[in-house]
Write a protein that binds this DNA or RNA. Structure first.
Ligand code: MN
Ligand code: MN
Length: 315
DNA sequence: GACCTCT
DNA sequence: AGAGGTCAACGCGCG
DNA sequence: CGCGCG
């Protein structure tokens, strides 16, 4: 026999690429007892829906080698030991005054997704793609409740949608798998991060102005005073948001799950931020389809939305 | 989690 | 073969 | 500039 075949280890071939999977029996999520093997299996099955949503986006890996409940750390730079077939992209950071070049990765195929799953990481993605890296194709409103209360999040998302519709935008929505929702807008990549963030902040400010007892745009925890924080800072260069269909490092292995607006609106559907997990999201997709199917056929202009909003508030 | 060095 | 140490981010806005 | 924050 050449090489050791540890019981817990397996070599697989995915799209012609060889991957060594390790510690497959290791329990990464207590409670239901979800192993790394099951986690990897999930990413393999979700790949067809997930890959189109993350391709071309530099990744930040939020790694949890000890599983949910243990300490994690972030990794942005491509490690030398990553397989050569993992796509690398060189990125120039303007760190304050200094400048720095960093090599990061993107996930272009199923093999990479499986490889990353074996690293026990949560993929977070940029809001722009490498072929036009300074111009986001996503605008994200991150609704962060102060506690586990979800009602304010639901209302916040619905109000957000109303205002965006007035501005000519049809937003999409997903649970984060943690405590809130992301309201997501596909953009035409004609507006840079700064201007996009400014527009997002203006929208968020309108909502905080309408219901200041419930919503705030203050990032400082002391100033939030129990209110839901509408976080628009994700809309910045080299910043990330949890990838759709990523598995969070939380009990039960909840996933960031694109959902339909009907689910947010209709209380009887009992949407919660952790409703969908590694164990039920595929069934949801089979039964109800992909709620974001239309996303890549749409794109909105921050500039015309801003113009529409201005003329609307003048009247 | 992966890699390296030391025993 | 196994133990043990080491490494793994960054932008924004405020005071 | 350092710090809180995600
Ligand atoms: Mn959030
Ligand atoms: Mn946030």
């Amino acid at each position: 026999m050449n090489g050791q075949r540890r019981a817990n280890t397996r070599r697989v071939r995915v799209g012609g690429r060889e991957i060594e999977l390790t510690n497959l029996e290791k329990v990464l999520f207590q409670e239901p007892g979800i192993t790394k093997g099951e986690l990897i299996g999930y990413y393999g099955r979700i790949a067809p829906v997930m890959l189109p949503l993350i391709k071309g986006r530099p990744l930040t890996l939020h790694r949890f080698p000890g599983g949910a409940g243990e300490a994690g750390f972030y990794q942005k730079k491509a490690a030398g030991y990553f397989p050569e077939w993992v796509n690398r992209v060189s990125i120039d950071l303007r760190m304050g005054r200094a400048e720095k070049r960093m090599v990061q990765i993107t996930c272009e195929n199923k093999a990479t997704l499986i490889y990353l799953a074996n690293l026990a990481c949560i993929p977070h993605v940029w809001l722009s793609r490498t072929d036009r890296i300074n111009y986001p194709d996503r605008m994200i409103f991150d609704l962060d409740p102060p506690d586990s209360g979800f009602e304010a999040v639901r209302y916040g998302a619905l109000i957000m949608r109303e205002i965006l519709m007035e501005a000519g935008i049809e937003p999409f929505v997903m649970t984060t798998g943690s405590r809130g929702l992301h309201v997501v807008v596909p953009l035409d990549r004609e507006t840079d991060f700064g201007e996009t963030r400014e527009f997002a902040a203006a929208i968020a400010g309108m909502i905080a102005g309408l219901a200041p007892d419930y919503f705030t745009v203050e990032i400082a925890k002391q100033k939030r005073a129990g209110r839901l924080f509408i976080d628009t800072y994700r809309n910045s260069f080299a910043q990330t948001a949890v990838a759709p269909y990523a598995v969070r490092a939380l009990a039960g292995a909840p996933v960031a799950a694109p959902v339909g607006w009907d689910e947010v609106k209709d209380k009887r559907q009992k949407l919660t931020p952790r409703k969908y997990t590694i164990r039920n999201i595929l069934e949801r997709l089979r039964q109800r389809g992909d709620p974001w199917e239309e996303m890549d056929r749409k794109s909105f202009s921050v500039r015309s939305a801003a113009a529409r909003l201005r003329s609307f508030s003048r009247t």
